[in-house]
Amino acid sequence: MSTTNDLRLLRAQSSLEGLSVGDAFGERFFLHPDVVESLIVSRAIPASPWYYTDDTQMAL
Rank of each mutant, 00 (worst) to 15 (best):
M58F: 06
D55I: 14
Y52N: 10
V21H: 03
S20Q: 13
T4W: 01
S42D: 15
V36T: 08
D6G: 04
L10R: 03
G26H: 02
V41G: 01
S15E: 07
A24W: 00
D55W: 05
Y52W: 07
L31Q: 15
F29K: 09
A47T: 13
L19W: 03
Y52V: 12
P46D: 10
L16S: 14
D55H: 08
I45A: 10
T4Q: 09
R43E: 15
P49V: 03
P49H: 03
E17D: 11
A12S: 13
A24H: 02
R8G: 01
D54I: 07
L31G: 12
G22H: 02
S2M: 01
L16F: 11
M58R: 11
L16I: 13
S2F: 05
L10D: 00
E17L: 14
G18P: 01
F30K: 09
L39W: 12
F25P: 01
S48L: 08
S2E: 09
A44N: 12
S42C: 09
L9M: 11
S42F: 02
R28A: 15
L19I: 14
L31Y: 01
L10N: 02
W50V: 08
E17R: 14
Y51G: 07
L31F: 01
M58K: 08
A24D: 02
M1T: 15
Q13K: 11
P46F: 07
T56P: 05
L7V: 12
V41M: 07
L7R: 11
I40H: 05
V41F: 02
S20A: 15
D34M: 10
Q13T: 15
V35M: 04
Q57F: 06
G22Y: 00
R11W: 00
F29E: 07
D23T: 11
L19T: 10
E37R: 12
A24C: 03
V21D: 01
W50C: 05
T56Y: 02
L7A: 15
W50L: 06
H32A: 15
V36G: 06
G18E: 05
A59E: 13
R28E: 07
A44F: 02
A59V: 13
R11P: 00
Q13F: 07
L19V: 10
M58H: 06
S2G: 15
T53I: 02
D23E: 10
F25K: 00
A59W: 05
L31I: 11
N5V: 03
F25L: 12
A24E: 04
I45W: 03
D54K: 12
T53G: 06
F30C: 09
L60F: 08
S15K: 05
F29L: 14
S15T: 13
T56Q: 04
V36R: 10
A12P: 00
A59I: 12
V35Q: 13
Y51T: 04
L31M: 15
D23H: 09
D6S: 12
V21S: 03
G22M: 04
H32Q: 11
E17S: 11
Q57T: 15
G18R: 03
M58G: 07
D23Y: 05
L31E: 15
R8K: 08
S15I: 03
M58T: 13
I40K: 13
F29G: 11
D23I: 05
D54L: 04
Q57V: 14
G18H: 01
A47V: 10
A24P: 03
L9I: 09
A47G: 07
V41K: 14
A12R: 10
P46S: 12
M1D: 14
Q13D: 09
R8S: 08
G26L: 07
H32N: 15
